[in-house]
């Protein structure tokens, strides 16, 4: 694969200090994500998944190593440098949603597009598309506090996608969703991915991970597996009987 990777991480390390004791969360990760790729990061809690995506989005400072986003060295940026880079290139979906409390859902979603230089009309059209895909059209004029956890999470995803970022980073984007709402999120992710969106997300949810081009597994802050899923053999109908067996 040639071309500038969307992400390149070199020997990335994060060590937290906990009462004078160094706690390594990420221990030397090398990772390359091509433009347009969809990568899922899995692993037990405490394996460093969240720390890794937070560092890739500049929300957590790396202890050592390098981060390159879209060909630009990012780990040496100041906080405001990161903020600028994120505004232009990165959408982030947090586990906790970080919506602006005194703005409507519609304004929350339009804001990043407007900040990214979209016209009001483009921002509105993008917002309408995203909220529609996520089944939230009717909630557009609500305040975040009036929404359920699952609704807030979907708004956070819409907001992250509002300015069509080069890179979407997400930390458990379906963590608070029931099965039906998860389906809406899956459909939207697969739709934007098909249109070329680069996605890196942390997930426990096998339905989400199974949509990725590649799955990276972490254990104790290190990558223990990294590879494409075996391409779904088009099984003859019915052999999902590997999984489904009804007795009688």
């Amino acid at each position: 694969m040639t071309g500038t990777p969307a992400i390149k991480a070199i020997n990335l390390v994060k060590i937290y200090q906990s009462g004078g004791v160094p706690v390594p969360a990420v221990r030397g990760i090398d990772m390359r994500v091509e433009s347009g790729e969809f990568v899922a990061i899995m692993g037990p809690s405490g394996s460093g998944k969240s720390t890794l995506v937070h560092m890739l989005g500049g929300l957590d400072v790396r202890t050592s190593g390098e981060i390159w986003l879209d060909g630009t060295r990012a780990d040496t940026l100041s906080e405001s440098g990161w903020a600028l880079l994120r505004r232009r290139k990165v959408g982030f979906v947090f586990q906790f949603f970080n919506l602006v409390a005194n703005m409507t859902v519609a304004d929350n979603v339009e804001l990043p597009a407007l900040l990214g230089g979209a016209t009001p009309r483009q921002a509105r059209e993008r917002r309408e598309y995203l909220l529609g895909e996520l089944g939230l059209t009717e909630r557009a004029s609500a305040a975040p506090a009036q929404l359920s956890g699952g609704e807030q999470q979907r708004v956070a995803l819409a907001r992250a996608l509002a300015n069509q970022p080069r890179l979407l980073l997400a930390d458990e984007p379906t963590g608070n969703l029931d099965s039906r709402n998860t389906k809406d999120v899956l459909r939207l992710l697969s739709d934007v991915h098909r249109k070329g969106q680069t996605i890196v997300l942390v997930t426990h949810d096998a339905r989400v991970a199974s949509m990725a081009d590649r799955v990276v597994s972490l254990l104790d802050g290190e990558i223990v597996d990294d590879g494409a899923l075996p391409r779904a053999r088009r099984r003859p109908a019915g052999t999902v009987g590997d999984v489904v067996e009804l007795r009688g």
């Binding site: 597996d225 590879g227 590997d242 999984v243």
Partner: peptide
């Protein structure tokens, strides 16, 4: 690792 990839590909089949 191999089993995880296998389960995920089964999940992909179920999605489809």
């Amino acid at each position: 690792n191999r089993q995880r990839r296998h389960y995920l590909s089964l999940m992909r089949d179920l999605n489809e």
